[in-house]
Structures are given as structure tokens and as C-alpha cells.
Design a protein around this nucleic acid. Structure first.
Lengths: 182, 182
DNA sequence: TGTGGTGTACCGTCCAGACGGTAGAGTTCA
DNA sequence: TGAACTCTACCGTCTGGACGGTACACCACA
């Protein structure tokens, strides 16, 4: 693994495990088996490190999403369905998610990166769609997935597996291509 | 206003305006027209201040919600509908929301407070309900509202007012008491 | 009525340690 | 050889928190 990605990985671990307050250059360097000087060679400032972290998280997320979309035969709403599936995935590991949230809290301007990425997916859904009402449903499902993402990341609701399953089924139903709007 | 709430208020302003990194005791003291010593009299540690801030935000949110629920004639799903209305409210001011997110990022254990509060509302919805499928829809709507909350707080999607309106209508429809599950 | 005592609220200063970042020498390898 | 990379040592600044002190309200009791 390249030193660069070892460092962003280490930063994620520290952020998720010890919180934003503990996300210092020294801590990240120690976690990544790099000296502080080495870290600063790759990321000149802390800000750059945070941008790298967020970019890394979003890229992986995007890749996961693309893969799921490609496997979906129907282009209409495929992004929304992939989105739900990705969030609900059982191997959904909260480290990257928590780290993403932490980094954005520390450096609010990184929200721009979220916006860019989100815009792509919205466009992907909107394009092959005729009915505007369908788009609203897809948006709704996506927002619910975001909510689920937040809930799982912060562990806010204690959802049983059964309820989570029913919820995801319902979301997928709303995002289904051959929807009869039930 | 009591010194205590003046301080949490000041902390919110600083957190939302200048970011987590700038949320220092001195900055909060200056913003609240209190000396650092005075601040530390009311909140012995920074952690205590963050808990106070989160508690404050959630309490107000709860109060807003309760008020809306009381005005709703039908108890079934009233919490979910109130939730949507509160998130979508045009005077939804992002300062408290941003601060809430920032404080939680800084002190992840405050998520416990979210959990407590969320549990109350979920219980409020689940109790007067017969059909389990309805509960899933209410949960879905609530999650979508959480997603909308996050989106508005971080300004992730650029939702037009028109789309936002349509979205909220759809959410309220799904949460409506006399639902025919359309 | 006055005097001493107690508790609450608040202030400003100080400090050890942690922080982000710099400087420059050393190492590895094409 | 030189470029890419990594190291250790260091600097100036800021931070959370401790601390000693002030102001004032209230109360007991002589």
C-alpha cells in the first residue's frame, strides 16, 4: 500500500476511534507507521490531510456505488437502489463513515466534495426518467438512505435486523423501476 | 437570560460560524461576554460544555416537536409528521444544527443523548399503531427527514424550493393517518 | 443595628503540555 | 548522481484548566 493511502487510512482510524479532538498530525503519523516529517511530506498541511481523507472516503463510496449500478439492468433509478443497498450492506463499516463526518466537522469546506459527488448521482438518476413524480420518490429514498447512514454511523436508533430488513425492502420497493407507486 | 444558556448559545454561534477547530473555551467566553473563569465556573470542563450544548439543542428540538404533536388531532404517526414539518420549516436555522453536529463530532459520546431523545419519539409513534407496515413507513419518513436535515445542515444537495415542497408533500402523504399506502 | 461568617457568581493571570509546521541531514533506489 | 522519500530535532503559539482573588447577597446572633 502506498504511504499516502496508509496515512489517510491511519487518519480514518484515529478519527473514528478517538474522535476529532485526537486527530492530530502526530497521532496520525504514529498510527500510520510514518514519522511526522514523513506525513508532512505527503500532506503539507493538516487541511490537505483532511481533504485527502474525505476525497478517499468519497472515492471508495463512489466506486462501490458504480459497481452496484453497473450490475443493475435497469438504468432508471439504479443509482437510488444502489445507494440504498450500499448503505444497508451488512459489511457497512462505520470507521470510514465516522471519519468522514469527523473530517467534515473539522473542515467544513470539504462539504464541497460531498456536494460534487452527490450531484453526479442525482444526475445519474434524473436523466433517464420521464415522470417527475418518480424523481421525487427516488429523492425521498435517497434521503432516507442518508438518514439511515447517519443513524448507523452515530448509532442513534436501535433498529432490529428485522425492522432494518423491512425498511430496506420498502425503500427498494419505492425505488423499483416498474413502480406502481404503492 | 441565564449565564448558563448565554454560554451554550455563544458556543453554538462559535461552532457554527468558525468551525470545530475554533471552538475553544476562550472563544466561547468572549462570544458570551463572560470571562474564561466565569465560563469554567458553569462548565467545569470542555466536555461538560459540549454536553450542555448538545442537551440544549436537543431540548429545544424536543420542545418544538412536542408542540407540533399537540396540535395534531390524530395521535397515530403524529410524531413522524411533526418531525417532517420541523425539519422542513422555513425558519429552520442551521446554527443550532451545525453546532449540534460539530459538538457530536468533538465528543462522540454525546450521541447517547441523541439516542435517548430519538427513542422517545419512536415510542410515541409505535404505541398507538396497529399495522406494523405503517410503522415501517413512519420510520422511513423519519429517516428521510433525518437525511433532509443532514442535507440542509451541510448544504449537500441543491434542492429547489419546488422540489423540496414536492418532497415534503410526499413525506407527509406517507406519514398521513388515513393512509391507503399510496 | 452592626459584625462576622458563609455560599454563589464571576474575574484575570498563569503554566505545563500539546499543537501545527519548519529545517535540514540521512537513506534508498533508479 | 540526483530525485524521492523519511527521519529527528526544534520553534512559536495556543489550549485547557488551575488558582487566588473580588463582589455581593444572605444569615445568625449579640
Amino acid at each position: 500500500m502506498s504511504a499516502r493511502s496508509r496515512i489517510t487510512e491511519g487518519a480514518m482510524t484515529v478519527a473514528a476511534r478517538d474522535g476529532v479532538g485526537a486527530l492530530t498530525l502526530e497521532a496520525v503519523a504514529a498510527e500510520s507507521d510514518v514519522s511526522k516529517g514523513g506525513l508532512l511530506y505527503h500532506f503539507a498541511t493538516k487541511e490537505a490531510l483532511l481533504y485527502g481523507l474525505v476525497r478517499d472516503c468519497l472515492d471508495r463510496w463512489s466506486a462501490d456505488l458504480s459497481e452496484r449500478i453497473d450490475r443493475d439492468p435497469d438504468p432508471a433509478g439504479a443509482a437510488a437502489r444502489a445507494y440504498v443497498a450500499a448503505v444497508a450492506a451488512p459489511d457497512h463499516d462505520p470507521i470510514r463513515e465516522t471519519a468522514l463526518l469527523a473530517a467534515t466537522a473539522l473542515e467544513p469546506t470539504t462539504a464541497d466534495l460531498w456536494r460534487e459527488t452527490a450531484a453526479e448521482w442525482t444526475a445519474a438518476d434524473a436523466t433517464p426518467l420521464a415522470d417527475p413524480d418518480r424523481l421525487i420518490d427516488l429523492l425521498l429514498v435517497r434521503l432516507a438512505a442518508d438518514g439511515l447512514w447517519l443513524a448507523r454511523t452515530l448509532d442513534i436508533y436501535d433498529l432490529t435486523d428485522e425492522r432494518l430488513g423491512a425498511l430496506v425492502d420498502r425503500m427498494q420497493q419505492l425505488a423499483a423501476a416498474e413502480s406502481d407507486t404503492t
